[in-house]
Amino acid sequence: MNINATLILQSIAMMIFVWFCMKFLWPPLLKAMDERRERIAEGLAASDRAEKELEAAKATVDQQIREARDKAGEIVDQASQRHSQIVDQAKDDAIVERNRQVSAAEADISQAANQAREELRSSVANLAVLGASRILEKEVDADTHRELLDKLIAEI
C-alpha cells in the first residue's frame, strides 16, 4: 500500500466527473422528472374534475329521466281518462239514441193501433148499422140514429 500521486489524479478525475454530472446529467434528468410530476398531477386533477362532471351529468340525466317518466305517467293518465270519457259519452249517446228510437217506434205502434182501432170502430159501426137494418128490415135513418150509433161505436 503506497500512498502516491494516484491520490491527486483520482481527485482530479472525481472533480471532472462531478462537473460533468452537474453540467450534463443532473439538470435534464431533474427537469424531465419534475415536468412529468407536474403532468401527472395535472392529469390526476383533470381526472378528478372529469369524475365530478360525470357525477353532475349523471344527476342531470337522472333528473331528466324522472321528469320524463312523470310526464309519461301524466299523459297515460290523461289518455285513460279521455278514453273512459269517450266510452261514457258513447254509452250515453247510445242510450239516448236507443230511447229515442224506442219512443219513436212506440209512437208509431200506438198510432197504428189507434188507426186500426178507428178503422175497426167505424167498420164495426157500419156493420152494426147494417146488421140492425137487416134486423129491422128497414132502413135506419143514419141521421136520426146518429147519436145512438155514435154511442154504440164509442162503447166498442
Partner: peptide, 22 residues
C-alpha cells in the same frame, strides 16, 4: 518510486467506470 508514482490500473478502471456512469 516514492510519492510521484501512479497506479495505472486504479486510475484506468476508475476512469472507465466513471465514463460508464456518465
Amino acid at each position: 518510486m516514492g510519492f510521484w508514482a501512479f497506479h495505472v490500473d486504479t486510475l484506468f478502471w476508475a476512469v472507465v467506470l466513471g465514463f460508464s456512469f456518465y
